[in-house]
């Protein structure tokens, strides 16, 4: 269970948000909404432990994520604004290395299958720099099919994706939620993800 207690974020002198409280349990989805510059990305970075809240704490099963360190990183998957896809590596190398970094070592065959599921067949051996933005995003999202983490934190996962890819991601997320995963995501697009409980968090 992930909990945020009284989170506050300052950007310079300005308070971006403060007094944010929430808690999500397995199978639940939280959508973070708000206009540009309201601190959605900052909040997500806080939740995955990249940024430290100015006050308040984020806790996982009751303990502060900062004291958990790597134990926490092994149960979450974060997908940021930047997709973390290396231009100078091929699609398949990218997938193998990012999943290895996340603690899952896969062979080429599995990687190919995953890429096929993501609609990237025949692109396995291409350098990522020749891919389109949407295709790069697909490579980054392919990791979601591999990792066995309990919480996904997705920052604008649908940017640059076409309709079929959005549908694909929606299905992946729904299946994950049904299996008891937790998802926190921000998105500008309207997307209807069925979940047992959907929390809405508005930042203004």
């Amino acid at each position: 269970m992930l909990q945020g207690n009284n989170l506050e974020c300052m950007r310079g002198d300005r308070v971006l948000f403060s007094g944010i409280n929430f808690s999500i349990k397995p199978g639940e989805l939280m959508q973070v909404r708000g206009p540009n510059g309201s601190g959605k990305t900052s909040l997500l970075r806080m939740l995955c432990g990249l940024a430290v809240p100015n006050s308040g704490e984020v806790s996982w099963n009751g303990s502060d994520i900062r004291s958990l360190g790597e134990d926490y990183y092994s149960v979450i998957t974060y997908l940021g604004h930047l997709s973390g896809v290396k231009d100078d590596l091929t699609t398949i190398e990218n997938l193998c290395i990012t999943s290895a970094l996340a603690g899952v070592e896969i062979d080429k065959k599995t990687a190919c299958e995953i890429l096929q599921k993501m609609g990237l067949e025949k692109r396995e051996a291409l350098l990522a720099k020749v891919l389109s933005q949407g295709q790069k995003r697909r490579v980054a999202l392919a990791r979601l099919l591999l990792v066995q983490t309990k919480l996904w934190i997705l920052d604008e996962p649908l940017t640059a994706l076409d309709v079929s890819a959005i549908e694909l991601i929606k299905n992946i997320i729904e299946r994950y939620l049904a299996q008891g995963g937790m998802v926190i995501l921000t998105t500008h697009q309207e997307i209807n993800i069925t979940a047992t409980v959907t929390h809405q968090l508005y930042l203004s």
């Binding site: 990183y73 940021g80 970094l101």
Partner: peptide, 12 residues
């Protein structure tokens, strides 16, 4: 390109 974030969040 955002890989550093992934490295920082690695369980290793």
């Amino acid at each position: 390109d955002g890989t550093l974030e992934q490295i920082l969040l690695s369980p290793t």
